[in-house]
């Protein structure tokens, strides 16, 4: 009898573990692009090494972004971004930790496109701000979820100071584009 209970317990724990894992979708190759439109010049940079995880059961949604992985067209801009503006030696990662707040409107079991509202804490340069943004989830038949969002952030909110000499080169508000293709963790 003890043996049977032991085997059943192990099976129960195993099936629970499988279910929990299947609820978590992850990527390490998410892409974040930012775009600054200013009178003197436009600046664009991308990072395609973004870690992201979505738990479709709880709606928990997290991002972790290495700032030094942003690639710029011009080496000088990349240098200034890391050394002067973001100070990536002090703050190597930016993070977002939040939730999908309209989970009831998204059927992750049925392929289709769904509007999503995501709310949480965005931390850049050690400063955390609460944000709520709208995006989109595309649930694919192959079991992957494609998430996309575009939103603006004010750089002053994150203590990024622009010297007067380049005030016409960098916008006060930057457009952020997020693009993540999430796969079930147990795949």
């Amino acid at each position: 009898m003890k043996k049977i209970i032991g085997i059943l317990t192990i099976l129960l724990i195993f099936s629970y573990h499988q279910e929990v894992q299947a609820q978590r979708y992850v990527t390490k190759d998410g892409r974040i692009t930012f775009f600054s439109e200013a009178p003197a010049e436009n600046i664009e940079a991308f990072n395609n090494q973004v870690n992201s995880a979505l738990d479709i059961g709880s709606g928990d949604f997290i991002f972790r972004v290495l700032m030094k992985s942003f690639q710029f067209e011009k080496a000088l801009m990349q240098e200034h971004f890391n050394e002067n503006y973001i100070e990536s030696h002090k703050h190597p990662n930016a993070t977002f930790s939040g939730k999908v707040t309209n989970l009831e409107a998204i059927d992750f079991g049925t392929p289709g496109t769904y509007n999503a509202v995501v709310s949480g804490d965005l931390t850049i340069k050690g400063i955390t701000k609460s944000i709520t943004e709208e995006g989109m989830f595309e649930v694919n038949a192959d079991g992957t979820i494609h998430g996309q969002a575009t939103f603006m952030i004010a750089i002053a909110d994150f203590d990024i100071k622009i010297p007067r000499a380049v005030i016409n080169n960098i916008a006060e508000e930057i457009e952020i584009k997020v693009d993540v293709k999430l796969s079930p963790l147990n795949n």
């Binding site: 390490k28 090494q49 972790r64 290495l66 700032m67 030094k68 992985s69 990536s88 190597p92």
Partner: peptide
């Protein structure tokens, strides 16, 4: 470029 909590990149 750093460590993102899971990998050294």
């Amino acid at each position: 470029t750093g460590y993102n909590g899971t990998d050294v990149i």
